[in-house]
Simulated assay, not measured.
Amino acid sequence: MSDAINADLHCHSLVSDGTLAPAVLARRARDNGVQLWALTDHDELGGLAEAAQACAEIGLDFVTGVEVSVSVDDQTVHVVGLGVDPSHEGLRTQLRAMSEGRDARAHRIAEALREHTGVEDAYAGASRLAGNPALISRTHFARHLVERGVCSNTGEVFSRFLTPGKPGYVEHAWATLEQALGWIQDAGGLAVLAHPGRYRFTPQRERELLTRFVDLGGTGIEVVTGSHSAADWRKYAALAGEFGLRASRGSDFHCPRESRCDLGRLPALPQGLRPIWDLLH
């Protein structure tokens, strides 16, 4: 495939913390000119069958995916698995265990928000907004606090309450980098480091992370994504070349009202990179 195709290999449905059904996302992607699309819900495979069926009906090339939450130092890092087998029992088992941990964390977030905002029903409200009751995320709490009038938008909720150092943030131990890459590879997928420009690593620690990622068999890095600036595109294009990583592209679309970038609306990859999608078909 050409590096100029409109590939969108990172987005979320209501099965995790998006707001649209997988089939609706598929049609939105097709209508926005996407030629190759992946659904990559957080730690969840439950939307892939619906997405695949919808893509078959509308003639859109589809790639199975998942976004695995990883703990690195004191940060949560995300690794996208592309081309995973949704029926792989090892991957399914590990993701189920992570969902159980999410629920316990959600109860702790609700209690912290009750103490600092006075909102008594934060868990129930977030649960109501979650399309998948097994996966209640910070985003669902943010939407509930907007509904309750505590903040005007979800970005404000995150900045005031739900990021590290804020009163509603609850630390959680996710998978290790080694575990996440092992699960993805065992399920036949390619591991891609998601939106690296979002993390708060020093330049030295970022390079150490990339070295470790490559040593563990990581294949790609998101160069063009919804949260990256033009400067980020240039930086991670250079790092992709330096570390021998394939370049990926994805909007990280969650919701028409909240997302920085709609499906299929990203610029093309910078020239000279090796696209990850050449390994997917």
Rank of each mutant, 00 (worst) to 15 (best):
E57G: 03
T163W: 01
G168V: 00
A130G: 05
A238Q: 14
E242I: 09
E100K: 08
V192R: 06
G59S: 11
V77M: 09
S99W: 02
S229K: 09
A173M: 04
S16K: 04
G218W: 03
D121C: 02
M98S: 13
A38H: 02
L82M: 07
R207I: 12
L39K: 00
V224L: 04
A238M: 08
V223Y: 05
V119C: 13
P164S: 06
F213A: 09
E222D: 05
G59Q: 13
S248Y: 12
S2G: 06
G47P: 09
H88D: 15
D31R: 15
F243K: 03
T211Q: 15
Q185L: 13
G101N: 13
A26H: 02
L145Y: 00
G168I: 01
Q204K: 14
S227T: 15
L60C: 10
A29V: 11
A97D: 03
H107R: 15
T19M: 07
G149A: 05
A180K: 12
R143M: 02
V24M: 12
R234Q: 15
F243R: 03
A112F: 06
L95W: 06
A21Y: 03
I58P: 02
N6M: 08
R205L: 11
R108A: 15
A194S: 14
L210A: 06
S13G: 03
D43R: 01
S137M: 10
K235F: 03
A29K: 11
V119K: 00
G189I: 10
A194M: 14
V15D: 01
R92Q: 10
S248V: 11
D186N: 13
P164C: 10
F161W: 14
S229F: 04
A104R: 14
N132L: 05
P203W: 01
A134H: 13
E208H: 06
